[in-house]
Each structure stands twice: as C-alpha cells, then as structure tokens.
C-alpha cells in the first residue's frame, strides 16, 4: 500500500476537499494504482541531474512600473457569489 485511507483523508483536508466514505475507499484504491505506476521513475538514474521546471530558458520579464487601466470595482465584483459595497462577502471568519 502506497497510501492509506487516513492519508487520503489528510491530503483531502490539505486540498480543501470532502469525500464520502464510499469515495474515500474508491480514491484510496485508485490513488494506490496510480502511485504504484509512478514507482517506475525509481528505475531512472538521475544522479547529478538538475530538476527542470520549464522547457524554455526563461528570464525575468521586467517592465516599467507605469499606471495602466485596470478593472473597475463593479466589473471585478460582477462574478462574485456575494458582494456588499466594494467587497466580496464570505461567511463569518472570526467567532
């Protein structure tokens, strides 16, 4: 076993997901299959190889800090599930 049901519960919490008991069992088995497949990577000799994060040599893209048009409050809030005044509204955070 690569991953237990308890680990699935822990990772789900990190990812802010909830699963039913049935889903947890199914996911534990599927994730195990997938992670077992990943073990294949251990066969590859990577001694001294720099990890690669991007395919193209990238440099920082700098530009002058100039004032440009930006989205209005109204447009920025136009998709909000709940808004009040110029703010996004969420359930109470502090008890």
């Amino acid at each position: 076993m690569k991953i237990t049901k308890e680990e699935v519960e822990y990772v789900a919490h990190l990812a802010r997901l909830d699963f039913s008991e049935e889903e947890k069992v199914k996911f534990t088995s599927q994730l195990n299959d997938i992670l077992m497949y990943m073990d294949k990577l251990n066969e590859a000799d990577t001694a001294g190889i720099e990890p690669m994060s991007h395919a193209i040599a990238l440099q920082n893209a700098f530009r002058e800090d100039t004032v440009k048009d930006s989205l209005s409050h109204e447009l920025s809030l136009s998709n909000a599930p709940e808004a009040r005044g110029p703010f996004f509204r969420v359930p109470k955070v502090i008890e």
Binding site: A15, N79, P81, F88, V90, P91
Partner: peptide, 21 residues
C-alpha cells in the same frame, strides 16, 4: 469567494471552501 459556484448552507469559511470545491 470571487467568482463561480458557491455551495449553500456553509458553516464558516473552511466549510464553505470544502463544500464548494
């Protein structure tokens, strides 16, 4: 929070994140 679907009947922020996602 900012766009898209939000679940109903949430008890606090964390609950909203989890139920929504």
């Amino acid at each position: 929070v900012k766009y898209g679907f939000r679940a109903d009947d949430c008890k606090g922020l964390l609950d909203m994140y989890k139920k929504t996602r």
